[in-house]
């Protein structure tokens, strides 16, 4: 399968993520859109890694697996981010009884 398909899919998912972040006000949806963007990046990483593995894998077997390890890192960071982010959203809800990000326009108070 040509690499193009992966790239286009990833691009589509990434754009959906961006548009979601820009247009929605519900913080949970924004949060999910951020996850979409992260996963689009993950998808690209895996795809490129596979592609390079086909070319270089015989000579440099470690290179291919190193690239894929990055994906795991990102997933770990994303998971951590989810826990922190969700906690913030919960606090947000407790304070404002809403998850609308437009209420969050002040640094003080």
């Amino acid at each position: 399968m040509p690499i193009n398909y992966y790239i286009f899919l990833s691009l589509a998912v990434f754009c959906i993520g961006i548009i979601g972040v820009l247009t929605r006000r519900n913080s949970i949806i924004i949060f999910m859109c951020v996850e979409l963007m992260l996963n689009a990046a993950n998808l690209l990483l895996v795809a490129f890694s596979k592609m390079h593995h086909l070319v270089l894998g015989t000579n440099f077997p470690t290179l291919a697996s190193e690239a894929q390890v990055f994906v795991f890192f990102i997933m770990v960071v994303a998971a951590a981010e989810v826990s922190v982010g969700l906690a913030i959203i919960v606090m947000l809800y407790r304070n404002t009884h809403s998850v609308d990000v437009n209420f969050l326009n002040r640094l003080k108070n």
Partner: peptide, 13 residues
């Protein structure tokens, strides 16, 4: 510096 998260992200994009 409006404080609107959306604006910031828009500017970023």
């Amino acid at each position: 510096q409006s404080g609107q998260v959306g604006t910031y992200i828009l500017l970023m994009v």
